[in-house]
């Protein structure tokens, strides 16, 4: 926990360095919080809103896409299934050295046709994030779907439900814990994602928290660690709130009850 105490201490000391001193909490004040909230050139609240927007849409869409794919892999048998499963995760292991460059080229090309999806748009950023959504998420959910007894599907089918109906109304409820975990992980990933967002989002009013905040400290000579820490603490609030809200799904044991 100590690193986080450092962050808190630095946020509360308006003129502080991050690690220059071990005298934690030697000065306490909320100047840094004010500074970052009231500074014109760093529209913190706007960044906050952008981040929420991007993270929410990404989380919902990627959880849904992952669940769809996991359902197919778990319940259906088709040619190339095993190959597909392995390929999806192996692709994600590719070193992303040129990732930012490639995605920049791609998005600028898309932007030439559809300005609304191109560079400097949240839609574009979300689409890029969704590109990475299938891999690990699918796997996580795939394992979980396998634990849901297939008798449930069969019973529903006998009742006359189609595959889509089974999936949306029955299965999804049963796997709520893993959906919650995946959604939470997805939110955390897109809140803290920096590299791609920094390349794609150009105007300050479009940027996300990660991009905006890093600018405060990117030049070591003028780094404002105190404001940065304050900003990072506030940025963690939605994640914390979401975790508290989802916790009961994550640990609630809903599956066990429903199977009976």
């Amino acid at each position: 926990m100590f690193p986080l105490l450092f962050v808190l201490s630095s946020a509360l000391n308006p003129n502080g360095t991050l690690t220059g001193s071990n005298a934690l909490f030697s000065k306490i004040g909320i100047d840094s919080f004010w500074r970052i909230l009231s500074d014109d050139k760093s529209p913190y609240l706007l960044w906050f809103w952008n981040t929420l927007k991007v993270a929410t849409v990404t989380a919902v869409a990627s959880t849904l896409m992952g669940a769809l794919a996991a359902y197919a892999f778990s319940r259906m048998r088709f040619a190339g299934r095993r190959f597909g499963l392995i390929t999806i995760v192996v692709i994600q292991m590719f070193p992303q050295l040129l990732g930012a460059v490639a995605i920049f080229l791609m998005m600028s090309a898309i932007g030439d046709v559809f300005p609304a999806f191109g560079l400097n748009t949240h839609t574009g950023l979300i689409m890029v994030y969704l590109g990475g959504a299938l891999g690990v998420n699918t796997y996580l959910m795939y394992g979980f779907f396998n634990t849901v007894p297939v008798e449930i599907d069969e019973a529903a089918k006998i009742d006359g439900a189609g595959h889509a109906r089974i999936f949306f109304t029955i299965i999804l409820r049963l796997v709520a814990p893993i959906l919650a975990v995946v959604a939470l992980l997805s939110v955390i990933t897109s809140v803290s994602e920096y590299l791609i967002a920094s390349v794609l989002l150009i105007d300050p009013e479009n940027q996300t928290l990660a991009v905006g905040l890093v600018k405060l400290v990117s030049n070591p000579r003028y780094a404002d660690w105190s404001a940065f820490s304050a900003g990072a603490i506030m940025a963690a609030i939605p994640v914390v709130a979401l975790f508290l809200a989802l916790q009961r799904y994550i640990v609630g044991g809903i599956t066990a009850g429903a199977v009976k």
Binding site: M65, L68, A69, I91, A102, L105, G131, A133, T138
Partner: peptide, 22 residues
Amino acid sequence: PAKYLTPGLIFLAVFQVFVLLY
């Protein structure tokens, strides 16, 4: 199966596979 896989695969192909090929 394709109905369930298509949405994810398209995004995967467009963004991840493109990076790989590039």
